[in-house]
């Protein structure tokens, strides 16, 4: 019965820990932008950061394939023979510039 008691305490602790973590992630939804990941396509990143996809394609020097270019950032980096983190950093800079254009009002 001691084992059941310990498991009960562990389950209670687990409930609180996971509920707290869920609450923390809810706050993130409201306050933080989605980080860029290698699996994301350029249109996906454009959507999550509310920036036109053409701006991001232009920033990394890629002509999008017709009709829809849904290659992942990792795939584009492979095609361009460039490191993924470098491409992600370039996309992030383009997003930041679009959000805070020089001499303009922040969006």
């Amino acid at each position: 019965m001691l084992a059941v008691g310990l498991a009960f305490l562990l389950a209670i602790a687990g409930t609180f820990v996971f509920a707290y973590r869920a609450g923390r992630h809810v706050r993130q939804i409201r306050t933080e932008n989605e980080p860029i990941h290698g699996w994301m396509s350029v249109p996906f990143i454009a959507h999550t950061h509310h920036v036109p996809a053409s701006v991001l394609f232009q920033a990394i020097g890629v002509h999008p394939r017709e009709p829809h270019d849904r290659r992942s950032v990792r795939q584009i980096a492979h095609d361009l023979n460039r490191p993924v983190p470098e491409l992600i950093a370039q996309l992030q800079r383009a997003i930041d510039s679009a959000a805070h254009p020089p001499g303009g009002q922040p969006r």
Binding site: F18, A19, R21, A22, H25, V26, Q28, I29, E32, E34, P35, H37, H47, T48, H49, H50
Partner: peptide, 12 residues
């Protein structure tokens, strides 16, 4: 526009 954070919320 918040898929990763939403996934983390649902997982927890």
């Amino acid at each position: 526009d918040r898929v990763m954070a939403l996934s983390a919320v649902l997982s927890d």
